[in-house]
Design a protein around this nucleic acid. Structure first.
Length: 364
DNA sequence: CGTCCACGTCTAC
DNA sequence: TAGACCTGGACGG
């Protein structure tokens, strides 16, 4: 499931499924999970969810007790609400089912009050996910790329002197201190859209971007749909996945084909891939950029298919038949404006190629 | 059967 | 900069 869009879709799922549902009793943890017990029990409570970047927060809210209008706390009854903050690891998701349809690997379960009972489960096959009772958003994670765009942007641009930005842009995009919500498929899709070589220095790619995103309030007339710089795409590309609905990257789901068709680069036939310095596979097209790991050209094109990503050939063909967008080249006259401003404008140009990119760096 | 790979953190040498 | 943490699907022999 899990990059920013999937976490957000999970929160929407919980709110939709649990709307008006009354839960009861203790919260049950599987034997095998090493995560903490959730010491919460209540005769009647509700569950709501919110997301921020790559985290989801469940809020358990006791319903008002009718006992003389007084709050009770006897028998371990909760009278306070409780927040539980989840991270999904590689395989986490929520599911709301009948009691006998609880999925395998449901490691934390919330039971409804009615009979027959239903269950909200946190399912996590690989158990890399975690939860924290009475938790808060992890303090070292930056603002949400989707729902805190302005502060996300400010957080990046005001910390470009941080050594973290010495690294290749593709690796920095996975740094949750600055890009809370970006994961492996999103970084590939974002850099691909702008033709930014993945192993170009992050600071070089980000320096000179304006603090104010000029595309923020509606697009200037005549602007293409995808217009925007890298930071804006870190916002809009994940939102595209949210708008696909369904569950994004979840192969078990019926509407997964919509997500497959949406991918333009990640695991797409004909694209290149390299292991980055952290051993994660970076998918891209064209030049890898100056900071590519040594020996990248020996990259193996995967002979094996990703079990999760198997594009049906008819879908591929459909995609190829789509009219290709005309790639507008930047006219040379546009290129010799001034310094950082020139570069920043260039960085906001919709269609990138490496020549454009190098020109931009040159004028810095 | 065995090897490789997967949407992500973590912490330890 | 390695590993550790896990399960399970695809593919190779």
């Amino acid at each position: 499931m899990p990059e920013g869009p999937e976490l957000h879709l999970a929160s929407l799922y919980v709110n939709k499924m649990c709307d008006g549902v009354v839960f009861s009793g203790p919260v049950i943890k599987s034997e095998v999970s090493k995560n903490p017990e959730v010491a919460f029990t209540c005769d009647s409570f509700r569950i709501t969810a919110t997301s921020r970047g790559k985290e989801v927060k469940l809020t358990l809210t006791p319903m008002k007790s009718d006992d003389d209008g007084k709050r009770r706390s006897k028998g371990g009854q909760a009278d306070q609400h409780m927040d539980i903050v989840f991270r999904f690891g590689m395989s986490g998701y929520f599911r709301f089912t009948s009691e006998d349809e609880v999925p395998k690997h449901a490691h934390l379960r919330f039971y409804t009050k009615e009979k027959p009972r239903r269950v909200l489960s946190f399912v996590d096959t690989r158990r890399f996910g975690s939860w924290q009772p009475n938790g808060t958003w992890q303090p070292d994670r930056g603002p949400c790329i989707m729902f805190e765009y302005k502060s996300f942007r400010e957080n990046v641009l005001s910390h470009l002197s941080d050594r973290a930005f010495d690294r290749p842009i593709c690796e920095v995009l996975l740094n949750q201190k600055y890009f809370n919500g970006i994961g492996n498929y999103l970084r590939a899709e974002i850099l691909y859209r702008l033709n930014i070589p993945p192993f170009v220095c992050a600071r070089d790619a980000l320096e000179g971007l304006e603090l104010e995103d000029e595309f923020e309030d509606g697009k200037p007339k005549g602007m293409k749909r995808e217009a925007g710089d890298v930071l804006r795409l870190c916002h809009t590309v994940p939102l595209e996945v949210v708008s696909l609905g369904g569950k994004g990257y979840d192969p078990e789901k019926m509407d997964y084909s919509a997500f497959e068709a949406w991918l333009r680069c990640y695991y797409v036939d004909g694209m290149k891939s390299v292991r980055d310095h952290n051993g994660r596979t970076m998918w891209f097209k064209g030049d890898p950029g100056p900071m590519a790991p040594k020996g990248w050209s020996k990259r193996k094109l995967p002979k094996k298919k990703n079990p999760h990503i198997q594009k049906k050939s008819f879908q591929r063909e459909e995609k190829l038949k789509r009219p290709r967008k005309k790639h507008r080249r930047v006219k040379p006259s546009q290129v010799h404006v001034k310094r950082k401003i020139a570069a920043s404008k260039l960085l906001q140009v919709n269609t990138w190629d490496y020549v454009t990119f190098k020109n931009a760096l040159f004028f810095l």
